[in-house]
Design a protein around this nucleic acid. Structure first.
Lengths: 198, 198, 198, 198
DNA sequence: TATGAATGAGCTTTCATTCAT
DNA sequence: CATGAATGAAAGCTCATTCAT
């Protein structure tokens, strides 16, 4: 007798998940171009052909990962949107980022995938959307810093400059975490925000 | 008439240089995998075959770029080695890094190429040497911070943690510069070193 | 309760028939290579796996269709075998062919499948048998024409040449029917046999 | 020293020709889908990669062949266009077709390629243009037959029916030639046009 | 030294076939 | 008997590398 629909769905979801997990690690590690479908299949413990039953092309799981990253970013945008004070918002977001980077590699990998692909010219379709998403996060942060400066919560100075520095630090931390692995030591909140907080 | 040895050597060096310059831009822009030998040849204004008179494989010029980066790093190590005070050394190195990142893309490109390849495990032979070089720079910096803390020039706290944060920031800035291009605004020295200086 | 043997057999035959019918249409339409097992399964309203309960490979139903075509041809050979006069035999066979081509696409499809595969050298095992079958039909026709010429029913001339022309016309008509579809207009018996009949 | 431009051009043309010739034979023999690039490369005595230096895809040489076929057809259309009498035009075209089919396999192969692909649904881009070209030739022929009937040169009867029969015969002859090879015997002009001429 | 035509290994993708259910 | 998830060989295509000139 044939499998039940439920059985099939469960199998499908399990396989999809295996592919995505392998893709996350490999795309972060080697970048899109150097990661072959064979690599992913081997890491996921399945055959190459099976990937194409679940994704239509090599780009497809990659784009799904980008979409996930956008979702992750949106969580941070939400933190920024629902603040009591700018300082509190920034602090909360930063603490969350430090923690995420420290306790798992997932967010770092998302970040790395994005950085890797953002500079590659070949247009992987979703990248543009992602770029916009990033820039909107930058913009929101800049406004927040400006507001915090008005309220006297932050140091004076070009808020855009502070924004870029802030995300440089976060980005750099994510890279460092993946590079150092176990040997990574996370900075304190005050270390990271020293340049901004009074 | 045949060319003189000197003429030939000069031509050889000129061609090598053209290839390396094209490689630096392209590898930073598109990554190793997406940059083809044909791309490099076209950007350098020569034929594909000629590249193989000057380099033995596609990896070869890439590794040369890594070697250059190591040299660049060594300059910073020298700064650290010949200091009057740890604070002065760190300040000087940081100022130099900020400036280099701000005023040209060359250093940022070196950094980006390195970061990209550092996580790729197999592939590139020279990477291990580079990794060691980096770690030695980290080590030197850590010792310097420790020394500076003794002298009361730096905040107290795990010097290794500070080291990682420092290089996270530098790395992040280099990425940000390439990502933002003209729209990049460099941070001040005090912004970057705020977490460390008293 | 288990099904009876008869029920099972009837189901088996029904499924086989569905597959063959779908195969005839698809192989004639898209050719062997472009017709996928999935195409056939979908057209037959069954799963891909089930096809392999009834046929051992993709070639198998194709070969069955060739076998059917041989049977169809044999009907015509029988017409030739049981004639009163050569003229009557040829006329009857031609009328039958014109009619079959005109009123359904089945025979044309058989012909098309055959023509397509006849020139492919390796690939299909049954083709050789089919080739022989065709040549024997040609031979019978040639003898018949010779006999008819003796009796003064046909024009004089190389009977083999006439045979090839005759089957060229039939073959061409079948192609034309499939190519033109609704817009096809069948020729008259006299048009087709004008070159032969006195 | 590098090769001269002329040398390169000569090499390029020679290779292109080898590919087209191999393609003509193979596409006619096995159809588009069953002919692999490797097949063509082997038949042409070159490597697979080289084909892509001269053609952008597998479709590309195929489309070139179709374009050639269209050109061949246009020659026949020209015959029809520059006639003294319809009869003379049809006779001349037919004689030319019989001769071409008899003395080389080239035209037959062109015809066969087209027939094979015309019924395949997958749209090989040029096929539509070709279809139009064919139908325009049919149309011209039909008008010519009508005119000839007016002048009393042809038998009365639906001229469209005669047109289809005429091209059915030609098409069938081309098939037959390829099928029979050396054993093919060409019909006389009067055999082929018997249905039409008075 | 310099060129670019030619090679072939390796990639993404498809699909006939198998097999657990 | 029936399903469709899974496999893996083979296809089209790209590109690092070689080599005749």
């Amino acid at each position: 007798m044939a499998r039940t629909k439920e059985q099939n769905e469960r199998m499908t979801m399990a396989t999809r998940k295996k592919i995505m997990e392998a893709g996350l690690v490999l795309f972060a590690q080697k970048g899109f171009a150097l990661t072959s479908i064979k690599d992913i299949a081997e890491a996921a413990g399945i055959s190459t052909g099976l990937i194409y039953r679940h994704f239509s092309s090599k780009e497809d799981p990659f784009n799904s990962l980008i979409a996930n990253t956008i979702e992750e970013l949106n969580k941070f945008i939400q933190i920024l949107d629902s603040y009591d004070s700018p300082k509190q918002a920034i602090v909360e977001m930063t603490a969350s980022l430090i923690g995420d980077i420290h306790f798992s590699n997932e967010l770092s990998r998302y970040f790395l995938i994005v950085i890797r692909s953002m500079l590659e010219e070949e247009v992987l379709s979703q990248i543009d959307e992602f770029r916009k998403s990033i820039l909107s996060l930058y913009d929101k942060t800049k406004d927040l810093i400006k507001e915090g400066q008005k309220r006297g919560e932050f140091k004076q100075g070009n808020p855009y400059k502070y924004t870029l520095l802030f995300f440089s630090i976060i980005q750099g931390m994510a890279n460092m975490k993946l590079f150092m692995g176990d040997k990574y030591v996370a900075p304190e909140l005050d270390d990271v925000l020293g340049f901004l907080l009074i």
